[in-house]
Design a protein around this nucleic acid. Structure first.
Lengths: 118, 118
DNA sequence: GTCTCATATGATCAACTGTTCATATGTTTA
DNA sequence: TAAACATATGAACAGTTGATCATATGAGAC
């Protein structure tokens, strides 16, 4: 029952609590995916990009102007956000218009802002 | 009006869009704070800690057993989560019981899980 | 075709992150 | 008091990250 629970070698572990929480805990994969999502949101440049796209779609050049970063830096970050399925884009001639790929982002920002500004 | 907008040196910028988004954009400070919050959620160990605490309060030793990490590693991460006001603790004898400091976390996880598992 | 423009990509590098190990702190028990 | 214990803290080190610069791609204009 508690073969490998006493990994700290002593008796400070509450077996009942550990077992209860273990059952509720999600898998390693899900934990890693969740962490990757939050990590993608965990950079000021990307926060600004996503928040800007909350207002409307923008091209890379506009984004760079709005947030005050180089176009290369923005492009690199957009790539990361694309792989996390946070943004998508449509092409119009030479210009790529980026927009949010997901309506969860707005709610994540809402909750985050509440936490930060309280 | 657009003195410093044409930072890319060319004419790909949509001034109206840039100005509209700029007005909505939050301050640098808020962006950094938000990014720090999400960064704190952006690590598998911390995700597991927080998710475990969603079920019930736990001591450091229990947390280490549940998520399969060293107590030192857990303690270091708890410190970070404390500075971000994500967890708090109460002392009972030698043991420190940690719990969530904030009900936003549950909703952040909900939204995050929806995004990840869709 | 060639040129220009908007964006993407690759390499590089300093800064940061998370773990481990060793040690310190503060609490209980003997 | 000393010893045992739960946890915190500091140093150190490999691994990762984000910006920059240089270069590549792909589309429209000529």
């Amino acid at each position: 029952m508690d073969q490998d629970l006493d990994r700290c070698g002593v008796n400070c572990i509450h077996d009942d609590a550990v077992n209860e929480v273990r059952q509720a805990l999600f898998s390693e994969d899900v934990a890693v995916s969740l962490a990757e999502l939050f990590k993608a949101l965990g950079d000021p440049t990307r926060v600004k990009i996503l928040f800007s796209l909350l207002t409307r779609e923008l091209c890379v050049c506009d984004l760079a102007a709005v947030i005050g970063a180089s176009e290369s830096a923005v492009s690199h970050q957009l790539r990361l956000l694309r792989t996390q399925k946070l943004v998508k884009f449509r092409r119009e001639g030479k210009i790529l218009y980026y927009s949010l790929d997901d309506d969860h982002i707005e709610r994540l920002f809402e909750q985050g802002l509440e936490h930060v500004t309280e």
